[in-house]
């Protein structure tokens, strides 16, 4: 509904992503735990963009949404990076391609109510996460 777009191109943008997610979560009436999980997941995903996307660039679009099921927040992370060849592999705990702890994607998935990832080698990656007020 209310869309906020944050461009990610440097480490300081992580603060903007977290702050925009927190604002949206509070507006949508999410509980503190759900909010903290959402903000943390967003921080992980934005950091992934910084680390792996071409030029470390991408965007996050944050929307409040209301459905019959309740209110919530949806965030779409898009980058034009190298993409991911084996999604199953990166979604497994412990996998890491960049020397990190390798908990970014599977960890983020556990933190939110809905998580979808779409990627093709050479065509970038799109991750959509949603958190609901229940």
């Amino acid at each position: 509904m209310v869309a906020t777009v944050v461009v990610i191109s440097g480490e300081s943008d992580l603060l903007d992503v977290r702050s925009a997610l927190r604002t949206a979560a509070e507006r949508a009436g999410l509980r503190l735990t759900a909010t903290t999980k959402l903000v943390t997941a967003g921080s992980e995903l934005a950091r992934n963009i910084l680390r792996y996307a071409t030029g470390g660039q991408g965007t996050v679009t944050i929307e409040e949404c209301t459905t019959r099921a309740g209110r919530g927040v949806r965030a779409v992370f898009v980058d034009q990076g190298p993409g991911i060849a084996d999604l199953d592999e990166v979604m497994r705990d412990g996998f890491s391609s960049g020397g990190s702890l390798g908990i970014g994607l599977p960890g983020s998935r556990r933190l939110v109510d809905e998580f979808t990832i779409d990627s093709m080698p050479g065509r970038g990656t799109t991750v959509v996460i949603s958190q609901w007020d229940r």
């Binding site: 509904m1 209310v2 869309a3 929307e63 209301t66 459905t67 209110r71």
Partner: peptide, 17 residues
């Protein structure tokens, strides 16, 4: 304005408030 922009972009919009 945001709601109209969103409806124009997505073809329709359902909101509560």
């Amino acid at each position: 304005e945001r709601e109209m922009a969103s409806a124009a972009r997505d073809g329709s919009l359902e909101v509560e408030g």
